[in-house]
Amino acid sequence: MNGSLELEVADLDSKREIREVTEFLNSFGLEYEGDLDYTVILRNGPAMVATGSFKGEVLKNFAVNESFQGQGLMASLVTALTREQTRRGIVHFFVFTDPRKAFMFSELGFSEIARIEPYVALLETGLGSIDSWILEAAKELAHLPPNRAALVMNCNPLTKGHEALIRRAASENKAVIVFLVSEDLSFFSFKDRFFLVKESLGHLKNVSILPSGKYMISAATFPTYFLKKDQGLLAQTKLDLAIFAKKIAPALNIVCRYVGQEPSCEITRAYNQAMLDILPSQGIEVKVMPRLAINHQPVSASLVREAWKSADWETVSAMVPPATMAYLQGKTP
């Protein structure tokens, strides 16, 4: 790297430093994405010439001053960031970037997972890859016949609505895969959500329940789902579904995806719409199921969480299967 440049770790508690990074990114027409774990800055004297950050496994907020481009600054940033990630026990790295900038990361050994022109490309490097994840999943699913149906669900927590949807898929298909969202950013932990789905549906012989991993509705493929921001929502839903349609579904023999109708949540509704826009053209049928209603009330996990928090056991017990009920009774909100 250019010998006169200094690498500095930003103080993320300093409003002044954050403002400086924000203004630097803005000068390239880039937004500052907050909620970061670590940010580095390259300076030429007092002037910032490049910056990059990470949050968990995801590298983001990169910018390099044009007059310093082509001098290996991106390599310095990625080296410093991944070194710190590794120090924190993270060895698999993702970057979510402008498709026109993707080549800069390819040159640093990143492999492209998918892109949606002209909005976004997702790349990865380090230990772990989508191909190795698919191989592992294929092994787990080896006992299921082909032409499988799939559901990607959060089940936060499992309701009678989720249960009805999975049973419906199981009655209409020889094999069903339930990918349960792995990311531990929901109210109930992955471990507990997984346990409840297993308890209520584990006995169905033609249904396999797997963690969704890093390539479906994860912090890498779909950060908005967790951030609850609408910026870039369309691009992200499309990216997530492109990975599903082009990589996951063909390799795991998935021909159909089931989804529950979404009356309220804007992000989920956008995602469902994107499914209808993208998957059929890739040969994957989408079956949208009407939401289960109990006493004229549509069943929803967010309603269950609210009722549970206000100790409205009548509503909770009407909407959840016995295993979820027992679990919620044994837990304090």
């Binding site: 290996g72 310095s76 080296t79 590794t86 993270i90 060895v91 050994g109 380090g126």
Partner: peptide
């Protein structure tokens, strides 16, 4: 534990082990 050494700069190699 996992560890990294080296850089992504020209004529170098970055190695990550776990």
């Amino acid at each position: 534990k996992p560890a990294q050494a080296g850089t992504l700069e020209s004529n170098d190699i970055m190695i990550i082990v776990e």
